[in-house]
Design a protein around this nucleic acid. Structure first.
Lengths: 336, 336
DNA sequence: AAATGTGTGTAGAACGTTCTCCATTGCCCG
DNA sequence: CGGGCAATGGAGAACGTTCTACACACATTT
């Protein structure tokens, strides 16, 4: 009473029962009579009691799930987060996000911090770590990894089917009559494997091969600048492509700028497609054809898998979410 | 040893001292000899000990700061978060973000959750609550409110000088020769006061009056659609404005779309300015004149104020950050 | 009528820290 | 050489929960 916070002991005193009994009621545990249930619930309401999560942490659950964000700036995250919180609505779990940054070191720091705070489970979004490190974390705490292909036995994984996404784009462009289709990807990072851009590039190559076409991959970076420079290089070549598939929307925006500057009209002279379907892709002024990942479904799936694992599942699961192609104004038949 | 986690007792055993002594060393408390310091530090390194934050919570600090995000989708947040984490670099504090949503109820839930987890302090970004609720929270835990004007005595506040920002835009447009300058604002919410859009609208009115011009404010919403519809209405009128100042960049994008559709060229027929300087405003394809808030400075300031308060300051502080105008391609002299 | 179960409640020991005393030591000073 | 004091280390009680025992009352079976 003096320190301001209402504790389980206050509730027990008010209801005239033991703290253990209150604990049982709060947790919905077995062995509580209807009468006890009523008494305690009333006392809780009267006092406005909320269990102290930090104290809970020492013994049992903390009902907190951590989400490590690798790059806060990624416009794709809000959808995932919305999916996670939405998938958890109705449960007692609370989501907290940790800004992990793009460095392995800072990501590890945030992950450790979440473990030190006794979180019940972790969702790691596009973590830049070795599989060994991930496995080490996963033996401490239930883990779901989002956005990395080829998950290990110790943790669950949710991935977008990037191979399929790339195929959707290539099929669409080929269907429009394009044959010279180039792909801009992100420069390879040695440390982590199975990152989306790698898989997208592979998917692009496979799809091109399936159509009997030659592939043409250029690695710059998934930034506006990276897309711009990649497109400039591609457009300067003889036999320039009639379509450019950028592995990320942000790079596609750079491609559009390069096309503007080169005096090429889109989509007549050059078709452009991206990946991620970020918010501004749908703005009329941009109207970018893109692959939509449905981050909400991904987030909700990750949340569901994590809760399952916390509640006891040990078998590892990998869930693949199918993307869809959103055709907009930046793709069309090539000018003959 | 058995449960995997290294505890302070393990360290104490290894170093041959008491747990109390280890605690002192860890906290850098007074009353530790150089020899003790060395012994314990070595044992900590050998065992890879990390203090268990959840256990700490029960007694002292938890070294965790919570940031409540009111709308994850706001492109302005990453900057603030970067500022906060940057401002905290070098300290022991860890930042965790809580997705608060736009509803007062969900925001309260997240805030409560953070308090229940014994966070040492909270940064609330654009909270939708009454001053009374904010004050109630602030008496429990140190609080810094970001993005709301007119803070109370119980907590600190960091705000962008929205009056100045609006004036910068109006001065710029008047300097170019505009006299019919309209403003699109966000529909008033009854519950919370001092929200940025209100202050921006006030600033706009003041600035117009200062130039002896008539103001023209239209309230829709700060969305692409809101900007679009507002602009359509403004442009349909007789004596249509030659410049539109949208209170947020996202709305300015809608204004641009409306101008495109109306066959008006920007900036010759219509100048457009926004607020927030979101990432895509700088893309060549958009090139939107906008007011930049420097979220990093705001975030870093909030972090500094919060730490100061945690460490004992009781006097309330409000810090106002000056915005700057970024002139780009969407504003120019009116066609005569 | 004794033995066995079943359902309900409580005592009290954890959990991993911090923090408030208190004990010990060594040193300085009168 | 004894008294006082500063510096250092430790014992043990918190902190607010959960959880494992166990006790008790009553019902059912042998």
């Amino acid at each position: 009473m003096t320190s301001g916070r209402v504790t389980i002991a206050d509730v027990a005193r008010r209801a005239g029962v033991s703290t253990a009994a209150v604990s049982k009621v709060v947790r919905g545990a077995y062995g509580v009579s209807a009468e006890m249930q009523a008494k305690v619930t009333q006392a809780i309401d009267e006092l406005g009691y909320r269990p102290h999560a930090a104290a809970r942490a020492l013994r049992g659950r903390t009902y907190t799930l951590g989400v490590m964000l690798s790059d806060t700036r990624n416009p794709f995250f809000p959808d995932i987060i919305e999916g996670v919180t939405g998938g958890l609505a109705g449960t007692e779990y609370q989501v907290l996000l940790g800004p992990g940054g793009i460095e392995p070191k800072t990501q590890a720091r945030v992950t450790d911090a979440m473990i030190d705070r006794s979180m019940d489970g972790l969702i790691l979004i596009s973590p830049v770590m070795t599989d060994a490190e991930l496995t080490a974390i996963a033996t401490t705490t239930p883990v779901v990894v989002v956005g990395r292909h080829g998950g290990a036995a110790a943790y669950d994984a949710v991935v977008d089917d990037d191979v399929m996404g790339a195929r959707l784009v290539v099929d669409h462009l080929v269907g429009l009559g394009h044959t010279r289709i180039a792909h801009i990807t992100h420069l390879e990072r040695a440390r982590a494997q199975g990152l989306p851009h790698t898989v997208r590039a592979d998917g692009y190559r496979q799809a091109m091969r399936a159509h009997g076409l030659a592939d043409d991959v250029l690695a710059t970076s998934f930034t506006e600048e990276g897309g711009y420079e990649g497109a400039r290089e591609l457009l300067a070549r003889g036999g320039r492509p009639t379509a450019i598939f950028a592995g990320a929307d942000i790079a596609a925006l750079g491609v559009l700028r390069a096309a503007d500057e080169a005096g090429l009209s889109v989509p007549e002279d050059l078709s452009v497609a991206g990946y991620d379907n970020i918010g501004i892709a749908s703005l009329k002024r941009i109207s970018l054809t893109s692959v939509d990942q449905d981050g909400q479904v991904i987030g909700a799936t990750a949340a569901r898998l994590l809760v399952e694992r916390i509640e006891g599942r040990t078998r590892s699961v990998t869930s693949s979410v199918s993307p869809t192609l959103i055709v907009r104004g930046t793709t069309g038949p090539p000018r003959r």
